[in-house]
């Protein structure tokens, strides 16, 4: 599997060489658009990260976790995972930190840690993606797709906790 990335790079470079594309210019041009792109999403990133920071510092994130963990328990999601599941839609780096903590506390091969890994790997930072994807366009009514994704993520978490019991 580790070979995939070198192979992709070699194929693209060799193909460009064969087609007589100016490789240096082409590559730099791509980076130029990467720079523009990063700058264009920076305002959204800053706003979302500030929201996550105040949400965490205010203690509301913890309160929400405590409030929801019995509900999650009923759905078969271990309490230890509540925080991870709740943080993931908002923050990739934040949830990665929790995942690390869970792996360290419970051991990499424990049920809790394996569950956490599967949940982490099969979900995305929904709010960040919606902010970045729709930054440059005027699409309205995003609530419905976002809710669909969040519900699907919750269903997947329940399924993940079930699967990890048997696999």
């Amino acid at each position: 599997m580790a070979l995939i990335i070198p192979i992709i790079f070699i194929i693209v470079f060799v193909f460009a060489l064969v087609k007589k594309v100016n490789i240096y210019d082409g590559f730099t041009e791509g980076i130029k658009s990467a720079f523009k792109f990063t700058v264009s999403i920076l305002p959204c990133l800053a706003a979302i990260f500030m929201m996550c920071a105040v949400f965490e510092v205010s203690g509301l994130a913890d309160k929400l976790c405590r409030l929801l963990s019995p509900v999650f328990g009923l759905l078969g999601i271990p309490q230890e995972l509540t925080k991870l599941v709740l943080i993931k839609p908002f923050s990739g780096s934040g949830s990665l930190a929790y995942l690390n903590e869970i792996i360290e506390n419970y051991g990499a091969d424990s049920y809790i840690a394996r569950c956490a890994c599967v949940c982490f790997g099969s979900s995305e930072t929904v709010f960040y993606i919606s902010a970045v994807y729709f930054a440059g366009v005027k699409v309205k009514k995003l609530a419905m797709p976002i809710i669909c994704v969040l519900v699907a993520t919750l269903i997947t978490t329940i399924v993940a906790c079930l699967i990890c019991r048997v696999m």
């Binding site: 992709i8 790079f9 194929i11 693209v12 470079f13 193909f15 460009a16 064969v18 087609k19 594309v21 490789i23 082409g26 590559f27 730099t28 041009e29 791509g30 980076i31 658009s33 990467a34 720079f35 792109f37 990063t38 999403i41 920076l42 990133l45 800053a46 979302i48 990260f49 500030m50 780096s93």
Partner: peptide, 27 residues
């Protein structure tokens, strides 16, 4: 956010550089 933007820029620089080559060569 600023740190994240820097990380993202690195990822995008690599992949958009490559994809610009792929685009120009018709791949």
């Amino acid at each position: 956010a600023a740190k994240m933007a820097l990380t993202l820029f690195c990822i995008y620089a690599v992949w958009m550089g490559l994809s610009s080559l792929a685009e120009k060569s018709g791949l």
